[in-house]
Amino acid sequence: MVTPPDNDVLWARALHHSHNGSPALANVSVGVREGEILAVTGPRGSGKTTLLRCLAGQILPESGEVWFNSVPVHTMGPMDRERLRRDRFGWIDTEPHLVPELTAWENAALPLLLRGTPHRVAKAVAQEWLERLDVADCTRKRPAALLQAQRQRVSIARALACEPFVLFADEPSAILHRSDRAQVLRTLTAAARTHGITVVLATHDVEVAGLADRTIALLDGRRVGGGVVTGGTEGRAACSLSV
């Protein structure tokens, strides 16, 4: 067994996975460095979501290894993986998927409450994040009364409020209009950089990939090309100003 490199906080080797026989990932290896923003690009059906879910411990790959901070994720039991997701990882879906019965701030505070943070602290932190994401005026509204862009912002606030070690974002801007898309992604990447959060961002948009430090491309469940360093100076410059 090869020990993971020191600077890779999350590391996967030779991942194979299929959904009930339909191949999704074939021999994918990837390393994510601490504090970086890694974009996973590729068209629909290229295995981006499956790769993210394998890395986040939501599904176990059929073969291959996933390591987080020198701890093997692929050998963990379901309980341990749930705890790892709750305490260390954040997740942003393509659709907001908020709990419809809870108000915006309750949704954003939910991960904190799950970790046992006192109610008052959780509320304050959630409201602070909602303010940063420009949705402070709808903290008391329920998801049904919000616009789609606002809902996605709340969902991003929910993921960032608990300041996860690694944040997985599965096409977070795909359902938004272009103006919202740029702003949401800029806020997300800037916040991640200021708080040193490692981000794995799946996207099929080349512009979005431009915000990342490094890009890897998937095609038909395989990696194509090497990891491309894309600079991501835009996000770095913005972080000190906007957040």
């Binding site: 309980m79 749930e82 997701r85 709750r86 990882f89 998927h97 908020l98 709990v99 939910l110 799950l114």
Partner: peptide, 15 residues
């Protein structure tokens, strides 16, 4: 779908 999203957040089945 909401339950699945909660589980992605790390809400345990026990909870």
């Amino acid at each position: 779908t909401t339950t699945a999203a909660l589980q992605r957040l790390g809400v345990t089945t026990r909870l």
